[in-house]
Design a protein around this nucleic acid. Structure first.
Lengths: 228, 228
DNA sequence: GCAAAAGTGTTCAATGTACACCCATGC
DNA sequence: GCATGGGTGTACATTGAACACTTTTGC
């Protein structure tokens, strides 16, 4: 083991900032650390990259371990490698961010090395975080906002069928600002990525709203443009 | 050493795609490998990240070793980590790209482990490259073009004082397309990043052109906007 | 005086922004 | 019938794109 200590240079991990919309808030998944350093602090879920998996696969695995979700939007964010970011050793982390739908997710703490809790936290009201994870989350919010200007990733936060008001709300939560209803609808409808359904919300106590879904065919043909 | 082989998981390097404009072409710096794998092939300059340096510093060091230049535009590009990208071991690379001025650069081969040559190559006419370096260069061209739409990074390729025609030419080389002279000038001049000098080119055999420089004060105040 | 590059404005189309009222439903 | 959120269109400003001629210099 001392041989290892002497020879090793770095460790490399992946941390995944997982966003969802829940209770009408933009939330991020955090895990509570069981051990030092930062025992008891909340952190972004992460883990070591296995020899046989590429970086995307490692991020997906971590996502799946915590949420049991796949088929989501996942994007490499940035690699953080300050020598002092990780007390006691040199750990470089390749950070990802993911957007998932909040319906039918059960968080799992099992199988988790050194984690006592897994929980959603409001993005705009975070606890003190371990390591440089605050910086990583801030950077991922910034990136998510940039993406939103050009591509419809907010869909990834919504259930399969959604109203335009719900879609607008998700944009507003991410951008943290109010948008104009008519301009918003004009923009997303001219984008030709929405499929208008002949279904309506089965009412609360007001006028039913038309449901839309994500047009996968159009989306895939535009993927090079939107997601590359 | 066998202990090392058994325990180690990954190695992490930085590769730096260094662009310049030289002979009226967009060029990229490549090194020729002396050893297997890919002996004799051209590759992007790179190297292992030292324990005490952060990622930007490692990229800067590699840049300086090859070109003896600092004070340049340098941006983290993407981290490439396919398990098969590096024959025989698992090497993850955090790629950067840099833009440098081509004047007063002498390339250095000395101090170079495993390198027999260092040379500029035309971006649009590259030799076969080692590893996944072709992919990395393509990705960096794409990123550089994206940046160019919003911020004036092409300055970084030019000498301190330059004409608008030279600036336009650098945009055209990066974007690989012709631009309209009047529209181009309108755009860069309204940007308020150029300082108009009372100096002119000391003529070849035509009308002298006004020189401009990069307005560092304005630039720094806009850095958050342009470069963050 | 002519070749060669520098310099200069206007028109049009498209896009983004501001803004207010009627509609369908549940109670 | 009224409260609640759903749905709709127009006018204006800003931005990007197309486009051609005059000016200054060296020879």
């Amino acid at each position: 083991m001392s041989t290892f200590q002497e020879i090793k240079t770095h460790e490399i991990t992946t941390d995944v900032v997982i966003f969802t919309i829940k209770n009408n808030k933009l939330q991020v998944l955090l895990v509570k650390r069981a051990n030092e350093p930062f025992k008891g602090r909340w952190a972004i879920p992460g883990g070591f990259i296995r020899l046989s998996e590429n970086l995307d696969a490692a991020a997906l695995r971590i996502l799946k371990e915590k949420t049991n979700v796949d088929n989501i939007y996942l994007e490499q964010l940035y690699t953080f490698g300050d020598p002092l970011r990780y007390p006691g050793s040199r750990v470089i982390t390749c950070a990802y961010f993911a957007l998932i739908r909040s319906d039918d997710i059960k968080l799992s703490v099992d199988n988790s090395q050194g984690i006592t809790e897994v929980q959603w936290h409001e993005v705009y009201n975070l606890p003190t975080l371990a390591y440089d994870h605050k910086e990583i989350i801030e950077y991922s919010i910034k990136r998510m906002r940039e993406r939103l200007e050009f591509c419809p990733i907010a869909f990834q936060l919504l259930p399969e069928k959604f109203t335009l008001t719900e879609l607008q709300k998700s944009y507003e939560l991410i951008l943290d600002m109010k948008l104009d209803k008519r301009n918003f609808r004009k923009k997303v409808l001219t984008g030709a990525i929405l499929k208008e359904l002949n279904e309506y919300t089965k009412v609360g106590s007001k006028r039913p709203a038309r449901l839309y879904s994500f047009d996968n065919i159009t989306l895939n043909s535009k993927r090079g443009h939107f997601f590359s």
